[in-house]
Structure formats: structure tokens, C-alpha cells
Design a protein around this nucleic acid. Structure first.
Length: 923
RNA sequence: GGGCGGUUGGCGCAGUGGUAGCGCAGAAGUUUUACACACUUAAGGUCGGGGGUUCGAAUCCCUCACCGCCCACCA
């Protein structure tokens, strides 16, 4: 039923509309999808935001893209599942709960592990759904019946299976390594969660005397406090300065130790004195160097960031940065401080806590990544996963080829507790398993177990305890696509929707997350070779099974920066909250402004102004639709009239519509969201509103014979345009669509237009282009000559071109249209009478004349003609120059040369016409 | 140190070998069957610098500069 246009307010109110339609879609079950063998599947498992999270611009951009792709495929007839969920966000959530506790004056240790975890759950029940509501505000058509959380029981099953498999294959091992220690969170963090920042610091030069009193060696350090943990000094084996001294002992100042001077490639002769102090427990390089030389590892900085007993009585218990000062002062007092230089230090910072990372020797669980990485390298090398933009493929491969082992244990309480159980009871009977502890603890064994019961059985003793640590958050999110679809169970969802189609995310988690999903997907999900396609993954050597990839396309979206190109951050206060944008401009304007900017660039400089501008487009869409609705009758069907009833202008807009549909589909298929938005913006505003609607107005008058045709073409074109726009601006399009004549219950399921070859009409396009050109020329004349709108004018066209004459003959449809749009009343076939009263202007293929009459200012007209002639002269010179160049004529493609000739002729004709007019006025 | 992106009118961007485009801002005009969040018209650019390839370069190659991102253990 057409809505009464009078019901529609003059400007669009997003708030009420958005809520109304969201509820309609959600309650109508339009977001839900089930496996449907009659349709092709399309699936996205959306990147799970942290439960602690709130929608930021990156989410808004990503989820707009995901939802646009979702809606587009749904309209194309796929069975579409877009599965949402959240991540338990180990460190982030634990930190929030700890801060909460701190306000009450407690630490987590005060309330104990069990209580603390209960509190975390409470927190997540209270706040965990907030981001879902924000996704709904944005319009995301996700299947809310399939929400997943990384700590759901079924998801935990997947994690257990992952751990078991890797543990039993010997890929998970216990190791003592230097890890990135976050002093504030009291936990190891991964390399990826560490940022390096250039900070101003000092390079301190110390002297270490030889034990035999024969002089000293100078070393430089940025971390003087680690002196206390030094167990050697190294110099390059090729360094002549030190060759005589290798093997000699040095007296380590401030301690009672003597340490050797060793030869190691790691020392670079050109840096400082060429000698470097070696602290195996507190630096990764030093650790590796220490391994090579069997050096002792002395931990002098503890997990709390304070100096340990091993640092000696003068320092024990002191904060690491205080100790730094004291070491320098003490060395100075001993006369062993050589100098202190200003120095820019690449300082490792923990991404979450912003604390300076302390490299610390500690015992952790690791995953041996090399064997798991190889298939994920092969797969991408064979282009079975498409990276968009393509450049990320090389970035991914580079990282994968240099992959390092993954430290998966975290010293937190919130998360998945490591399913390893320990015992130090001796092996009672041979049936009990359990791997021995390689490090220290003689007789200690461990085993994988899902429960204490299992552990007792596995280790053959009731004296068991579970590992205290939890798993890195990324250990669980690495399973996202298949675990959310049911793996390790063989579910119908997994069978139908996997592999998924698209993974879209920010570039900063390409390694952290994307690479790991590819690895786990290939490692865990397999299908019989005969029931999977080659494109789905890699055939196993047995030829019977295939490892299945998690997704086909990886789209890495731009980073949203502020208008000055700075990263948005809370501390800088330069962030834009998308929820504010939605409240102020509406979700559609927010989405459209994001899509307009989502090109292939690495970043987007976003300012609120962009959304304001997009809001204008939304308003234009609203008002043009109001106009259409106001001009429809109750019986208007919106069906396309038979072709023989269509005018040239009708055929033109359908041809443009078809071209636009093709362009939009093409752009969406390659994730060129900006191209899609641009094509739609241009078509709707310029072609449809500025020209088609204006041209159609007289035909809509009640007495017009063409009223019905015009109404139907108008309604049809608008309806098709709404379909095309719906994936990007879902709310307003549904609101208008429901008011227009339509079939079906919701636009969300309307078939997406792909363009119709039979609508392509080059003839109509050319004719209307000519009309537009001529209309502009006449409007220009009026404006240039300053002719008041009220003054009656006549116009005529003169052309030697029969096509032009035919199109714009004195009584053709287009000429009538032209006359109205360019605002002249009387029409004549050619200038007659006193030529001085006419002015002319060249158009493609001819000349337009306008009768100005007595008001014509001859001086002004002559000036105008001169200006125009000068511009034409420039064009002619350019073309003549080109055609006068023998090598151009000989070597350029013939059609290019021909085109240039035609162009020249056209300019020359225009020039001749103007010269003629000028002569007239010169009399 | 390595890699990648960017540099086009005042601002934000499109354009990947054949006459430099769009949006915004600014100028002038306009109640015209919806929209002043609009309409109409005009103005505004030697496409970061230099070199090369080509009949022809914003577009391809080399080089330099600046801005930004990612990676890397340099004390």
C-alpha cells in the first residue's frame, strides 16, 4: 500500500525508524539461517570483540563492511549466516575486575581464585552484552540465535581438543625462556602484545676491571641494574683488541663474582667499545649467548619488578628503576663510571598496561609452530586464500616463514586453565603415563587431563594438582571459525557453512589472529577428499583426506585515524565514538560515510564532517522518495511498462540504472566499498534526482497522457535503487521501500539487481547526454549574460549533424524538456529576424541560440565570445600539435588518431560559429 | 635496519598509458510540483622534486624528499 506522502515528514528521523525496522527484522527471523541444501551457503564468523569492549570506529567500519556483505549475499539468494560472539579477553577483563576490587581495597589474592573468577563471570554477565546492542544500533544483521562466547562449554571442548592434540603430538612443551614480563599484570605477554617506542634514555659506560689487575674493559648499557646479573662479557672473536684477553676473568663490580671474557659473534665490534655485558636471565640475546657458552643465569629482577636476593643485600627489594640509579651512583663512587651519554632507546612497552616490559627468565608452556605453519604457508602460496588488498599476502608469508614458538601460558586467573596436571608421586605402576619434567624437580611428572578424575587416572596417583596458569587468549580465538560452528563435534552447521567465506579485520591482528586461525583450521578440520573441492584446502599425503581452510577471503580494512592522521586513542582524547555519530546522524549516514572511505588505502582520515555530508545524501534520498510517493496513485504498481510506451528519457534512466547495478556488484565482489558507494551516490543524486526527476515532472501532471508510464518508471527505478543501496544503508531503504508499491514482506529479502543487458541503450544515453549538454549551455548563457529569470526567451538549435537535429528538432520530446529545464518559453526552428538579438553557444555537434531581444548587452556578449574563443583556441592548438607530430600519426593506434581528428574538427566548427557571431556584433 | 602505503585544486579523495574528475568549503545567483541538509552557474590543478622509457606519462621504471604504518634482539 502506498503510504500517503503527507504522512512523511519533511526530513528523515533516523531514531524511530531504525529501532522499528531492527525489531521487525530481528523478530521476523530474517537474520537466522539454517543449512539449506537448495541454496549456496555464505558464512562469516565475525571477529569477536572483547567482552570488555565498546564499539569504536574500527569496529564500526569492519562491521559495516561485514553487514553489507551479509545483506548483499542474502539478497542474492544465498543461505547467509553471520555469526556473532565475544572473546573473554583474558588480561583486559581481569584488569577491569581487579581495578574494581582495588576500589574496595582488595586484591585478587585477598578473595582467592574461585571468588575472583566468579566475579569475572558476574562482570561479564552484567556488561558482556553491551557491544551486541551497539552492533544492533549499527544495523548488523547477525544471527543472534547463534551467539558464541569463548568460554561456552562447547567452545571449551574445542580448546581442550586443540590442547590435547598438540600436547600428544609433542608440539606443546615446557620451556625456560626469556619472556616479555608485564610487571603490572604479573604475567608473560606475547611478542605481538609488545610495542617498541623510541624513548629518550641514557647509555652508561662502565669499566669492568680484570681480576688480575691488568686494566679494565669498558662496556655500555642502557640498563645498568642488570649488571648485578651479568655472568660474562662478550667480544667479537675477530676483534683484535680483545683477542689476547679471551678467557681471562673480570671482577664484576658491586658483587663478589668473577666473570669470563668470552668470544661471541653477537658482539659487534663497531658498537661502543665492542664489548658487551651478558645477562642471560634478563635479555633474550644474552640468554641465547649464555646458552652457547653455558653461562649461569642469575635472576636479579623479580616478577614484581623489584630486585631479588640474588642482586645482593644492598639492592634486594629495591624497585628496578631505583636500583638503576643506585648502581650508577655506586659505580661512580668506585671510579668505574666512564661516561653517560644521551641515547634513544627502543623501549618495549606492554600494549595493555603501558608498563615497560621486563625481559625475564621463566618457565612457560610453548607451542612448536614450525610444523603447524608449513601447511598454512603452502595454502597461501597456492592462492587458496585470497588476501585483499593483495599486499598482505607477502606480509603474512614473511611472518609465517620466520615464525617463532608461541608462549601460550599466562599467569592470570581469568581464562582457560591449562589442562595439565602435575604430580611428584613416584610412578606406581607402568600403566600410568605422564611426561617427566625436563627442568629441575626430579620425579615430577605431568599429563593432559580434562578433569581431576582423568588426571588421577592418567598419573596413577591421587596426589595431583592442576597447572596454575591459563592459556593465552589467542589460543582460544585461534579456533573461532570452526569452534563456533560446532567443532570438534560434526555438526550440520560445520558441514554446511564451513569453510566460511570472509574474514575481515584490522591489520594489527593479521599475525596475532588471522594467521593462527589459518593454522588451526588446516590442522584440525579435515574432510574426505572426495567430498571437498580442491579450492577448500590441501590434500593430505594419503590422498584420502583434505585439510580445510577456515575462510576463502581475508579482507584487511583500513585503520581509522583522526582528521590529522593520528591514531585515535583514549589518552589523546581524539577519538570519535561511533555511537555518538549514530545518535546524531543516524546509522545509515554513519555507515555510508564509512563505506565511502573504505578503499584500498592503509588508513582513513576520518572527521565527523564526512558523516554530516553522508547525512545530506540520506536526506536527499528521503526527499526524492517523498516526491515520488506524492506523485503516485493508489493503483500504481511500480511494474515496468512495456518498452514501446517508454520515452527516450525512460530508456535513458533504465540504461543508467543497469550500468550502476553492474558497477555496484562488481565493486562489492572485490571489496571496493568506496566504488560501490560512489556509483550509487552519483547515479542517485545526479542521474536520477537532477535529471530524471526534473525531466519527468511535466509528465506527472494529471492531464498528461504519459502520467502512468512516468509514475511506474519512477517507482520502478526508485525501488531498484533502494535494493542496490540496502546493504549499505539498510534502515532508510526499508522505510521507503515499505511505503512504495512492492512485493514481498521486507526489502532485506528482495532480489539484488545485477543489471539487465536489454536495458542498455546507447542511443538513449547519447540523446539525453546531448540534451543535458545543451541545457547546461543555455543555462550558462543566461547566467553569463545576467538575464533575469522572468524574461521570456526563445531558443533554437542549428546543426549540420542529422542526429543532433533529429534529437533536438523543434518539437521533439527532448527539445520540449530542454526548453523547460533551461527556462525558455517560446520555441523556434532557427534564428530569424534581427540576428543581433540572438546569442549562441556551441554544443556538441552544433550550436544553441537564444533570443535575448532588446536586453542584450552587446559589449558583454562580445566579451563572452572572446573568452570562449580563447579557450577553444587552446584546445585547437593542442589537437593540431598532436596531429602535426608525424610520429604520433604513424605510431599511435589508428582509432586514437581518428578520435583526435574528430575532436579537432568539432572544435574548429565551434570556433567558426563563434567567429561568425562575433563578426555580427562587430558591425 | 628491513618492508609496505601515501604525496592530485583550500580540505577530503577518485582516476594505472591517450582531452585532469568527484564531494566539501569559498564566490555569484535562485522560493523552480520533493529537498536551502536544496537548485543553478562560474572560478580554482604545470597530478611532491629530478631523471628515464614512450609518438604520448598523474598513470610504467629509477632516484630523492616529506608524511604514516608494520616488522626487527643491536648492547
Amino acid at each position: 500500500m502506498p503510504t500517503q506522502a503527507a504522512d512523511l515528514p519533511k526530513s528523515y528521523d533516523p531514531k524511530a525508524t531504525e529501532e522499528k525496522w531492527y525489531r521487525f527484522w530481528k523478530e521476523g527471523g530474517y537474520f537466522h539461517a539454517d543449512p539449506d541444501p537448495s541454496k549456496e551457503p555464505y558464512c562469516i564468523t565475525i571477529p569477536p570483540p572483547n567482552v570488555t569492549g565498546s564499539l569504536h570506529m574500527g569496529h564500526a567500519l569492519n562491521n559495516t563492511i561485514l553487514d553489507a556483505m551479509t545483506r548483499w549475499h542474502r539478497m542474492r539468494g544465498f543461505s547467509v549466516l553471520c555469526l556473532p560472539g565475544t572473546d573473554h579477553a583474558g588480561i583486559a577483563l581481569q584488569n577491569m575486575v581487579e581495578n574494581d576490587l582495588a576500589k574496595e581495597g582488595f586484591t585478587r589474592h585477598d578473595i582467592g581464585r574461585e571468588q575472583f573468577i566468579a566475579r569475572c563471570w558476574k562482570w561479564r554477565e552484567q556488561y558482556g552484552a553491551r557491544i551486541y546492542h551497539q552492533f544492533e544500533k549499527l544495523g548488523c544483521s547477525y544471527d543472534w540465535e547463534r551467539v558464541r562466547f569463548t568460554m561456552d562449554p562447547s567452545y571449551v571442548d574445542a580448546i581442550m581438543e586443540e590442547f590435547r592434540s598438540w600436547y600428544e603430538r609433542g608440539l606443546i612443551y615446557r620451556g625456560i625462556r626469556v619472556v616479555n614480563w608485564d610487571v603490572r599484570y604479573q604475567s608473560a605477554v606475547s611478542d605481538i602484545e609488545v610495542q617498541t617506542e623510541a624513548r629518550q634514555g641514557k647509555l652508561t659506560h662502565f669499566r669492568y676491571p680484570f681480576a688480575d689487575g691488568t686494566g679494565f674493559i669498558t662496556i655500555a648499557t642502557t640498563r645498568p641494574e642488570t649488571l648485578l646479573g651479568d655472568t660474562a662479557v662478550a667480544a667479537n672473536p675477530g676483534d683484535a683488541r680483545y683477542q689476547p684477553h679471551f678467557g681471562k676473568m673480570l671482577k664484576l663490580p658491586l658483587t663478589s663474582r668473577e666473570i669470563p671474557l668470552i668470544a661471541d659473534d653477537y658482539a659487534k665490534p663497531e658498537f661502543g667499545s665492542g664489548a658487551v655485558k651478558v645477562t642471560p636471565a634478563h635479555d633474550l640475546n644474552d640468554f641465547e649467548c649464555g646458552q652457547r657458552h653455558n653461562l649461569p643465569q642469575i635472576i636479579v629482577i623479580g616478577k614484581d619488578g623489584r630486585m631479588t636476593e640474588a642482586a645482593g643485600p644492598d639492592y634486594a627489594g629495591m624497585d628496578r628503576f631505583e636500583a638503576r640509579k643506585k648502581v650508577v651512583a655506586d659505580m661512580e663512587a668506585l671510579g668505574l663510571l666512564e661516561k653517560i651519554e644521551d641515547y634513544t632507546i627502543q623501549t618495549p612497552i606492554s600494549e595493555r598496561s603501558r608498563e615497560i616490559i621486563e625481559p625475564l627468565l621463566s618457565e612457560q608452556w610453548f607451542v612448536d609452530m614450525k610444523p603447524i605453519a608449513q601447511p598454512a604457508i603452502d595454502l597461501v602460496t597456492q592462492d587458496k586464500i585470497r588476501f585483499i588488498p593483495e599486499r598482505y599476502k607477502a606480509i603474512y608469508l614473511d611472518w609465517m616463514e620466520n615464525i617463532r614458538d608461541w608462549c601460550i601460558s599466562r599467569q592470570l586467573w581469568w581464562g582457560h586453565r591449562i589442562p595439565i596436571w602435575w604430580t611428584d608421586a613416584p610412578l606406581a605402576d607402568s600403566s600410568a603415563e605422564g611426561a617427566p619434567d625436563q627442568q629441575g624437580h626430579a620425579g615430577r611428572r605431568h599429563a593432559f587431563a580434562r578433569s581431576q578424575e582423568d588426571a588421577v587416572a592418567a598419573l596413577g596417583t591421587p596426589h595431583v594438582w592442576q597447572d596454575e596458569d591459563v592459556l593465552d587468549t589467542w589460543f582460544s580465538s585461534a579456533l573461532w571459525p570452526h569452534a563456533t560452528l560446532g567443532w570438534p563435534a560434526e555438526t550440520a552447521d560445520l558441514d554446511y557453512f564451513y569453510p566460511t567465506n570472509l574474514l575481515s579485520t584490522a591489520q594489527e591482528i593479521l599475525y596475532l589472529w588471522v594467521a593462527r586461525m589459518i593454522m588451526t583450521g588446516l590442522d584440525f578440520v579435515r574432510r574426505p577428499a572426495e567430498s571437498s573441492s580442491e579450492q577448500d584446502g590441501l590434500l593430505d599425503p594419503d590422498g584420502l583426506t583434505r585439510r580445510i581452510l577456515p575462510f576463502r577471503d581475508v579482507y584487511i580494512h583500513a585503520t581509522v585515524l583522526d582528521e590529522n592522521g593520528q591514531r585515535m586513542s583514549k589518552s589523546k582524547g581524539n577519538g570519535i565514538d561511533p555511537i555518538d555519530l549514530i545518535d546524531k546522524y543516524g546509522a545509515d549516514a554513519t555507515r555510508f560515510s564509512l563505506m565511502q572511505q573504505a578503499g584500498k588505502n592503509q588508513d582513513i582520515k576520518f572527521s565527523e564532517q564526512r558523516t554530516d555530508i553522508a547525512g545530506n545524501f540520506i536526506n536527499k534520498l528521503w526527499n526524492a522518495s517523498r516526491f515520488v510517493l506524492m506523485n503516485l496513485d493508489a493503483e500504481t504498481t511500480g511494474d515496468l511498462p512495456p518498452r514501446d510506451q517508454l520515452t527516450e528519457v525512460d530508456r535513458w534512466i533504465l540504461s543508467r540504472l543497469s550500468a550502476t547495478a553492474e558497477a555496484v556488484n562488481k565493486a562489492l565482489a572485490t571489496y571496493d566499498m568506496d566504488d560501490a558507494a560512489r556509483a550509487l551516490y552519483g547515479f542517485f543524486w545526479n542521474d536520477f534526482c537532477d535529471w530524471y526527476v526534473e525531466m519527468a515532472k511535466p509528465r506527472l501532471r494529471p492531464e498528461s497522457m504519459e502520467r502512468t508510464t512516468a509514475q511506474n518508471v519512477l517507482a520502478f527505478t526508485l525501488e531498484q535503487t533502494l535494493r542496490l543501496l540496502h546493504p549499505i544503508v539498510p534502515f532508510i531503504t526499508e522505510e521507503i521501500w515499505q511505503a512504495l508499491p512492492h512485493r514481498g514482506e521486507s526489502l532485506i529479502l528482495a532480489e539484488y539487481p545485477i543489471g539487465a543487458p536489454e536495458w542498455n541503450d546507447a542511443e538513449a544515453e547519447a540523446a539525453v547526454a546531448l540534451t543535458i549538454d545543451a541545457t547546461r549551455a543555455l543555462r550558462n548563457l543566461r547566467a553569463e549574460l545576467g538575464i533575469a529569470p522572468g524574461i521570456r526567451l526563445s531558443a533554437a538549435i542549428v546543426s549540420s549533424d542529422t542526429v543532433v537535429r533529429g534529437t533536438l528538432s523543434s518539437h521533439s520530446e527532448l527539445m520540449v524538456t530542454l526548453a523547460r529545464l533551461a527556462r525558455f518559453d517560446v520555441l523556434d526552428s532557427s534564428p530569424s529576424g534581427e540576428q543581433e538579438k540572438w546569442v549562441g553557444t556551441p554544443i556538441t555537434g552544433g550550436e544553441m541560440f537564444l533570443e535575448i531581444g532588446e536586453t542584450l548587452d552587446i559589449g558583454k556578449e562580445a566579451e563572452r565570445i572572446d573568452k570562449e574563443l580563447a579557450a577553444i583556441q587552446k584546445e585547437i592548438e593542442r589537437a593540431e600539435g598532436k596531429l602535426g607530430n608525424a610520429s604520433f600519426v604513424e605510431r599511435a593506434r589508428p582509432e586514437v588518431v581518428e578520435e583526435e581528428r574528430k575532436r579537432l574538427t568539432a572544435w574548429q566548427e565551434k570556433q567558426a560559429a563563434l567567429v561568425e557571431r562575433k563578426r555580427l556584433f562587430a558591425r
